[in-house]
């Protein structure tokens, strides 16, 4: 979870090796099923993408090819990773559509993306992600462009599917409320760094980083009605002109002298991690 410019999408893209040049991974490693994805050849990555690791993007009308029928796009994804007869691939595609709750999947297979609503298109995108039974799905704000009622359906379906198949899910979002009801664990990002991780209950009920606290206080809700919200002051710093030391110190009301130096990520008892010199009590 993070606000715009916090680097959450780039993190997701980096795992799949989808960062456009001149962007590149300069440091660190990505361990997936015991293999380091950094420095892997493009060919090896290609074998993983859409197969062991799948991605769902924010805008389904941008990720589905508008001039190809749904079945063409789905069967292509299956055959790219498995050598099976086309008829069998079609069956897999049909079953995937059924799994994500698309009514009359046989007819929908023959449709073009423009014939489907936004919610249906996103379901098709999810079905494509599920085709090859990935171990990990990275979902980059997949419900942001959708209406509340459709968003609820998609959240519900994705979670159920991942539970059934034992697939791990990284759900990238700017909306704390969405992940609160979905995630087992939350990592909060700010200005390119993970500033806090913990179980959902820990993050929502007992945030330690002043930024997480500020975010939770900024969410309008029943409790805030008729009152002023307590926003975080200032704005997200430009990554080009980050303040020295802790990137959040200019907006923080718990700044101390130590904040002139960047705080390291510390592991707290119980497994939470935190990047702050002076966490909330």
């Amino acid at each position: 979870m993070g606000e715009s410019g916090s680097g959450k999408s780039i993190t997701g893209f980096s795992i799949l090796g989808l960062v456009d040049p001149p962007g590149r991974i300069v440091e660190g490693s990505i361990d997936f099923e015991g293999r380091d994805l950094v420095g892997m050849s493009e060919e090896e990555r290609r074998a993983l993408r859409g197969n062991r690791i799948a991605m769902i993007f924010q805008d389904p009308s941008m990720t589905l090819n508008p001039v190809l029928r749904i079945d063409t796009q789905m069967i292509e994804t299956v055959l790219a990773h498995r050598s099976i007869p086309e008829a069998q691939a079609r069956r897999i595609a049909r079953d995937a559509l059924e799994k994500v709750g698309i009514p009359s999947p046989d007819e929908r297979l023959k449709a073009y993306p423009y014939e489907l609503s936004g919610g249906m298109r996103q379901r098709v995108a999810i079905a494509i992600a599920l085709l090859n039974q990935p171990r990990l799905i990275i979902a980059d704000e997949p419900t942001t462009a959708l209406d509340v009622s459709i968003q609820g359906q998609i959240l519900h379906e994705v979670r159920t599917l991942c539970r059934q198949t034992g697939t791990a899910l990284i759900w990238i979002t700017h909306d704390l409320a969405v992940v609160a009801g979905l995630a087992d664990r939350i990592a909060v990002m700010y200005a390119g760094r993970i500033v806090e991780t913990g179980t959902t209950a820990e993050i929502i009920e007992r945030p330690l980083h002043p930024y997480t606290r500020g975010l939770i206080a900024s969410v309008p809700s029943r409790a805030t009605r008729g009152h002023r919200l307590k926003p975080i002051r200032g704005m997200t710093p430009s990554l080009i002109h980050l303040p020295k030391g802790c990137a959040f110190k200019d907006r923080c009301d718990r700044t101390i002298a130590a904040c002139d130096e960047a705080p390291p990520s510390t592991v707290l008892p119980g497994g939470r991690t935190l990047r702050c010199w002076n966490p909330a009590p």
């Binding site: 609503s117 609820g152 359906q153 519900h156 409320a177 609160a180 009801g181 979905l182 929502i204």
Partner: peptide, 24 residues
């Protein structure tokens, strides 16, 4: 009623979404 049930709220714990049937 359905809209309010679907409103994501800042509460930890898995929510059981009872989605609205069908589409707009």
């Amino acid at each position: 009623k359905l809209l309010l049930e679907l409103l994501p709220v800042l509460e930890a714990g898995e929510r059981a979404y009872e989605p609205i049937k069908g589409e707009l």
